[in-house]
Amino acid sequence: MPEAHYIASNAIDRDKSKCTRNIEIGTLSNIKTVWWRVDLGDIYSINVLFKNYDGYEMRQKGRIAGFSLYLSNSSISGNEILCYKDEEHLPPLNFTTTCAGYGRYVIFYNERLDEYKYPDGYQSSTVTELCEVIVNGCGEAGAYGEKCDEKCPKNCQEQRCNIINGTCVGCLPGWNGTFCEKKCPEGWYGLECKLQCFAHCKDNAFCNHVTGQCDNECADGWKGAFCDEQCLEENYGVDCKFNCSSHCRNDVPCDKQTGHCVTNRIFRKRMRKYLRMKSDTVALQDVLDSKNNHYYRVTSSTMPGYKGLMDNREKIDYQNVTSN
């Protein structure tokens, strides 16, 4: 446990005379890393005041050199976003940086690893002393600007935008663009406009750019919230709510859009087209079974006289055939 005058909360008590201090890390210690974290909100800038000792300014700079500042929405390690990384030059002991973003946590991190050669001026064994950390930002979600008097664009995800220029961190489903001001292109919808519509809306309309659903019913022969379910063999029309006639010749199924009985000639033509699409290497012929009123796929080895037909055929689903 740290001593009372070195506890972590000293860095945010607005009393510069009291600092937080970690135990030593680096070559003289088994501990190689150090971090400090504060729970906040929208962030505009971060000011860090490090401990200074008269006559030891360069040593103090060498102690904190190489530090990083991160933002994170989670207390779980691995989800941080880098805000600032100190490079080769020694940092000032009164340090301020602009860090535009949103994060529940601001995290200070530093390390001294045995296997790494650090630049000149870095202290190989070090302690970190934070006297005051001041984070400026907007306390209210959906605001940005130096005075937090501007409103984030309405289509920003979670009403979060860049606190400096108002650009959206992410967009609501159905929108894109720097300020989320553009609808998804026609035929696309959802988060980041990455989902493609099913092309079965009534009158060839495009789906809703937000939900992906058809705003004005499905095209005839289709149903479902996304109009992606084809009518069953015995149904047709709007939302598949009509029943096919039971008097079609040879019990051939009706057309899923019109409900008209499909003639054997048309059905055979559709069957041949379907088999050509499904076949890669074998020769195929369509056969209507007068007993069961189903079409079957037959390989060339059984074609002559259809010998062995009952043992070498594959039933073709009406639902697939009549849609082609």
Rank of each mutant, 00 (worst) to 15 (best):
A143R: 05
G78V: 04
A205Y: 02
Y144P: 02
C254S: 00
A143S: 05
P253K: 03
E146G: 02
D255R: 06
D228K: 10
K307A: 03
D15I: 01
P119M: 09
Q257S: 03
K154M: 06
I46H: 00
S245E: 14
D54E: 05
A225W: 01
E181G: 09
D114E: 02
T178L: 00
N155A: 00
F179M: 11
A65F: 12
F108E: 05
E234T: 10
W36D: 10
Q159W: 02
S68Y: 04
E314L: 12
Y296C: 00
I164W: 00
G66A: 00
R21H: 10
N204W: 00
D255P: 05
K223F: 04
Y44G: 11
Q60H: 09
G305L: 12
N165P: 04
G78R: 01
E234I: 00
R59I: 00
F179G: 01
V252N: 04
G237K: 03
K18R: 15
Y144T: 04
H294G: 00
F50Y: 15
N204C: 00
V321C: 09
S245I: 14
K269G: 05
D42S: 08
W188M: 07
L275W: 03
N162M: 11
E234L: 03
T211E: 11
K194Q: 08
E233N: 13
T178W: 04
N208Q: 12
C218P: 07
D114R: 04
W188T: 08
C19N: 07
N216W: 03
E24F: 08
T33C: 09
P304W: 01
Y295R: 11
R59W: 01
Y6I: 01
Y295K: 12
S45M: 13
K256F: 14
Q285S: 08
K32D: 07
M58P: 01
Y295M: 15
R265A: 14
V38C: 03
K273S: 13
G103V: 12
M303V: 06
D203T: 12
P153S: 13
D311Q: 15
N22Y: 11
I25L: 09
Y118R: 07
G145P: 05
L232Y: 13
K182A: 09
Q123D: 11
N94H: 12
C244W: 12
I134D: 12
P91A: 05
F108Y: 12
F198Q: 14
E115S: 14
V169I: 03
K291S: 13
I23V: 15
L93W: 02
T299Q: 14
H89F: 02
E24R: 15
S245A: 15
C193M: 02
N264C: 04
E192D: 15
V298H: 08
G78M: 07
E24C: 14
K147P: 09
G308M: 03
P119R: 06
K307P: 01
F242Q: 06
E314N: 08
F95C: 05
I81E: 06
T167A: 13
D15R: 07
G26K: 08
G142E: 04
H294S: 10
C197V: 00
H209C: 06
C244G: 10
E3W: 15
K194H: 07
E314I: 12
R21Q: 11
G190E: 11
Y6K: 03
F108H: 09
I81Q: 15
G55S: 15
S68V: 02
P153T: 11
C193Q: 09
F242K: 12
F226S: 15
